[in-house]
Amino acid sequence: MKQTKHPIPLRFVDHGARAKLISIQSSQRIAHRLTELGFVPGVELSVLADSGSALMIALGDTRMALEYPLTQALLVAVLD
């Protein structure tokens, strides 16, 4: 499976594309909470929708809405 060379923020991933979480770049507190919610490096995600201020993310069978700043903190590699 090919992946992009440089991780990019989840915020800029196209709808429908699959991506793998590489790291979280935020305060310790926010990174910890994101990890609790299942955003663990290595998991696969995809962007389902964009509300204009938040993204709807698919994480396994779970759907989660994340506001833009949080999607900026999640660095991913796009899979194809």
Binding site: G38, V40, L59, D61, T62
Partner: peptide, 11 residues
Amino acid sequence: VDAANLERNLY
């Protein structure tokens, strides 16, 4: 726990 998503549930 959800057997189809076990890993995240084990936290």
